[in-house]
């Protein structure tokens, strides 16, 4: 009970202090995805004349909306994992002086990113509802399990990475590079059909099969179904998300409980 309040307070402190003394405040959390979406939309739809995926059954053809449905969840994933990874190092002053359950730090960092993510999502849904399809809001209840699984997935990764980074500072650099690569290997700015239709193979394994080993794929498919196709995600998508979240949490909890005692000695 008290811990829940503490985690929320730490998260709010982080949010408040990062936008303190800035005129736009939370506005900055909107501007970043808007610019990113704008840039990709310009590059891919105007210059490369990329295939505009058609939302099924929504009939949406806007490449910008297609991007938004993928990039907003992706940016949350990337920002949260990076912040979680360095959460022990950046809170070392606190960790050395007061005992709090260790998991409080990656968790509150994640919640701070998650709150920003929810605000961005809300903005997207409003835009979708007002300007395109009012019935987009009908799918909001199904967004909740997707968000919950996504949250657990990122939490699990953070619980494993944060103590590792306390032991070896290299981890945060590796994470930064890896997430950059991960972005391109996940169908965010392109549809999965681009891969699936080509029927390409690497060492005799269809590329599509390899893609399905990427846990982020399932979350992106889920969000895109709800926010662009405007339909319920397929059961296989939910299964993929659930397995990803469960595996990440399993790894995270085990790694964290093994490493947590050496955190203070090493930061």
């Amino acid at each position: 009970m008290r811990l829940r309040e503490l985690v929320m307070n730490l998260a709010l402190k982080q949010l408040r202090s990062s936008y303190k003394n800035s005129v736009l405040g939370f506005g900055w959390s909107m501007i970043s995805p808007v610019i990113t979406i704008g840039v990709y939309a310009a590059v891919f739809s105007l210059i490369l004349k990329g295939r505009a995926a058609v939302g099924d059954p929504s009939g949406l053809t806007s490449y910008g909306l297609f991007l938004a449905a993928g990039i907003i969840p992706w940016q949350f994933t990337q920002v949260a994992i990076t912040a979680e990874t360095s959460s022990y190092v950046s809170n070392q002053a606190l960790i050395r002086k007061v005992y709090l359950p260790r998991w409080v730090f990656p968790t509150s960092t994640l919640i701070a990113s998650f709150i920003e993510f929810l605000i961005e999502l809300a903005a997207l849904i409003v835009i979708l509802g007002v300007f395109w399809q009012a019935w987009a809001v009908l799918w909001i209840p199904l967004l909740i399990p997707v968000l919950a699984l996504h949250f657990l997935f990122v939490l699990g990764l953070g619980l494993a990475l944060a103590p590792l980074n306390a032991l070896y500072r290299d981890v945060e650099h590796v994470v930064t590079l890896f997430t950059r690569l991960w972005f391109w290997l996940t169908p965010i700015i392109y549809p999965l059909s681009l891969i699936a239709d080509e029927n390409r193979e690497i060492w005799g394994i269809p590329v599509e099969t390899i893609y399905k080993l990427n846990p982020m794929l399932w979350f992106i498919l889920g969000y895109r179904a709800l926010l662009f196709d405007l339909r319920a995600p397929a059961l296989t998508d939910f299964a993929g998300m659930a397995v990803s979240a469960a595996l990440a949490m399993l790894i995270g909890v085990i790694a964290h409980s093994r490493l947590q005692d050496s955190i203070v000695d090493r930061i």
Binding site: R2, E5, N9, K13, R16, L94
Partner: peptide, 25 residues
């Protein structure tokens, strides 16, 4: 003052510090 944040007000820091030390709101 463990966990005091310089940018936040005294009031905010009382709540912050209190919850770090284990008090509920």
């Amino acid at each position: 003052g463990t966990g005091f944040h310089p940018e936040l007000s005294g009031r905010d820091n009382i709540y912050m510090n209190g919850s770090i030390l284990g008090l509920s709101k």
